[in-house]
Amino acid sequence: MTELLDVEALRAKFLNTVFDEKQFELTAEDMSNYAIACGELATRYTDPNDPDFQAPPTMPTCIQPKKRMPKGFPKIAGLGMDAGKAVQSYKPIRPGVKLTGKTHMHDIYTKTGRSGRMVFFVNRMDIFDSDGEQVAWADTSIVIRERPKE
């Protein structure tokens, strides 16, 4: 007997409610090393001494919420994989600035792929600076290849 997720019920219950909030800051060392490993050459990303030094624009996607899923979200059998990332940058992120990330579940949907039925969960973290101004958002799309229970 198979038992697949009821996606519509999950959407109704969990979408668009902030389930995690965390404070964090990015260090100059991590920002620079992140940029260099990605192949950046622009010194405003690689050199902490550059007067315009800032985090590489995609770095917000590496910030992980404390909780991966909302409280009460069902455990899902299957291998979770990164299906996509999106990032929107509104203003530069400087080292040592206190940031707040608020995460909500942005979308849940299914499709069939090369690997069978797949369920996609999109979590969005909205990132704000200490003035409450939004500096970025980052979407993480996780796909789980369902393993139906026998």
């Binding site: 990605c38 995609t58 996607t61 929107q88 940058s89």
Partner: peptide
């Protein structure tokens, strides 16, 4: 990591246009 692939994409854009401000990168793995 997918986030590293995304970082490669932004780096590629900056190599082409060093003063470019990458505002949004949307990737499908």
């Amino acid at each position: 990591p997918g986030i590293m692939s995304q970082g490669f994409l932004a780096a590629m854009i900056h190599r082409w246009a060093p003063q470019a401000n990458v505002q949004n990168v949307d990737t499908v793995f």
